[in-house]
Amino acid sequence: MSEVLIFTHVAYCPPGHLGQVLRQRGIAYREVRVDQGELAAVDLSRARAVAIMGGPMSVNDALPWLADEDMALRDLLAREVPLLGHCLGGQLLAKALGAPVQRMPYTESGWQPLTRSAGAEYNPWLAHLPETFEMFQWHGDSFAIPEGAQPLLRSPWCDNQAFAWGERVLALQGHPEMTEALIREWLDDWHHLLDEHQPSQQSRAQMLVSLNQRVSVLNRVAEGFYLHWLRQAGLICA
């Protein structure tokens, strides 16, 4: 049986809303904790679609399992398996495609406005989106755009928020997978890392304003990405 795989790297960066979308459509998936060595037991040749989630580490860290994941992603890219990267996952895709990932001089966090990059008006990954919309952010690294990829989105604090590589690969710098519970968990456990005096960051209080409504809108943004990804894999009809 073919598989949908979700690569995760830490317990508090789960599939989130992506898992909900898959379960609602009766699509089975396998979560693979790459940081715990689970990738070694996965038969990548059976993968129909792969999503890569976030994590606190950098793609440039000297972790053996990151090197294993890089090799796996290069194999999946060569076989044109539909891939969808979230934050660290997007950075891992950029690295696997030969683009550098570098530390930014600040952290971008909270609800940030995204707009389309020049030339991205008709890209099918963005067909469901308005010209400007919000996405939840929490990152200190940023990817460059790989050679041959199309830049898709930008924010005031990060020019490279997303790129498409061919028709089947989407790399995102932000976190469309967030649920209300997951945002509250992050803010309860990690709010001490925030610095609201930096203009690129929001305070805990700012992130919680109209949270239910904002997450509802974010879910619809995410679903457009996820359904296009599943269509590219032939797992749902157009």
Rank of each mutant, 00 (worst) to 15 (best):
M1S: 00
F7M: 02
P15D: 07
L18G: 01
L22E: 01
Q24R: 15
R25S: 01
E31V: 15
V32I: 11
G37E: 12
E38C: 07
V42I: 14
L44S: 02
A47S: 04
A47F: 00
A51Q: 00
G54I: 04
S58F: 11
N60C: 05
N60W: 02
D61V: 08
A67I: 12
A72W: 04
R74T: 12
L76N: 09
R79D: 12
E80K: 12
V81Q: 00
V81I: 15
G85A: 08
G89V: 02
G89L: 01
A94W: 04
R103K: 12
M104F: 11
Y106C: 05
Y106A: 10
T107R: 13
G110Y: 07
A118D: 15
G119N: 09
A120E: 07
H128A: 14
H128G: 11
L129V: 02
F133S: 03
E134L: 15
M135R: 08
F136R: 03
Q137C: 05
G140M: 01
F143T: 02
F143N: 03
A144H: 10
P146C: 06
A149V: 10
P151K: 08
L152R: 09
L153M: 14
R154A: 15
P156D: 10
W157M: 03
C158D: 13
Q161Y: 09
Q161C: 10
A162G: 06
G166Q: 10
P176H: 08
T179F: 01
E180A: 11
E180Q: 11
A181H: 13
A181Y: 12
L182G: 06
I183L: 13
E185H: 12
D189E: 15
W190V: 01
H191W: 12
P199L: 09
P199M: 11
S200A: 13
M207T: 09
V209D: 15
V209L: 14
S210Y: 06
N212P: 07
N212W: 06
Q213N: 08
V217I: 15
L218H: 02
N219A: 14
N219I: 04
A222K: 00
L227D: 06
W229Y: 06
R231A: 11
Q232D: 10
Q232M: 07
C237L: 15
C237D: 13
